[in-house]
Design a protein around this nucleic acid. Structure first.
Lengths: 136, 136
DNA sequence: CAAAAGTTGTAGTTGAAAGTCAACTCCAAA
DNA sequence: TTTGGAGTTGACTTTCAACTACAACTTTTG
């Protein structure tokens, strides 16, 4: 049942793929964070994160990491067990979304179930991009 | 386009339905929170919350509020724009759930879509409780 | 009206999350 | 064998959300 990749492991993987040192990556991300007036990002902190000695950083930091690494921010955010930033908003705005989530978490779904739901989702959005022939 | 009920409004509604004063409710919740070794809950704070002068309280506090008011904690949590407490965990544990969320938020779903998904969900869980006659 | 309930501003406290720093280890190349 | 780059670690500090406290008010209700 192969233990799930952690946030730290994945992050290290991505960093190595880009041939960056912790110092480089941290400095780079730090700059970006400061540019948007947030706290910085020390390389020792990064080290702890990669070794899962400390919980994943803030969503803002994760997004910057993803950009520098040219990786998918959403993957990292979910790996971090964080809420995708739009979720709260979506929930506030959509009554139906709330209903969906309520049942989803009461129901304690299996992998199977989630896959089915993804399929359903794909069907629907695909239909939208590529409307099924003939005037609406 | 009827402006969505806020957390504060709903909370007040629930409190009045139970005929409690802010002082009563706050004291009650405060006790419960302290029992689980958390910070208390002042009635002036509650007032501010009901008037949306301050952001909704912590998830822990919301849960206690819901219990005292015999209301649905999940409703309040989502109204508060907070993450349902299991979500992070689910995301960490289920690859398929992650996939689902990634597409769901990329896709920017409509009410329609969410409803359809809820239906699909209901179909599946119902099938489970009440397995469809004869060999699968 | 008096008392109870609710509102609001301002300032203070607290614990935990986020981040830093100094001092270390490890390793490869010179 | 040393030197320098990379990574690790523990202890410390900073920041912030989530409260508390209290005073001074207004509104509601019996």
């Amino acid at each position: 049942m192969s233990q799930q990749t952690t946030f730290g492991q994945r992050l290290r993987q991505l960093r190595k793929a880009k041939n960056l040192t912790q110092r480089d990556l941290a400095a780079n991300v730090s700059e970006r964070l400061k540019a948007e007036d947030r706290r910085g990002f020390d390389f020792t902190y990064l080290s702890k994160i990669e070794n899962d000695k400390t919980p994943p950083p803030s969503v803002a930091a994760i997004i910057q990491l993803a950009e520098v690494l040219e990786a998918d921010a959403n993957e990292l955010i979910t790996l971090a067990g964080k809420t995708p930033p739009n979720l709260g908003k979506t929930l506030k705005e959509s009554e139906s979304a709330r209903t969906f989530f309520r049942s989803a978490f009461d129901a304690d779904l299996t992998e199977e179930d989630w896959k089915k739901l993804s399929q359903e989702l794909k069907r629907r959005t695909k239909a939208r991009e590529n409307p099924p022939k003939s005037g609406d």
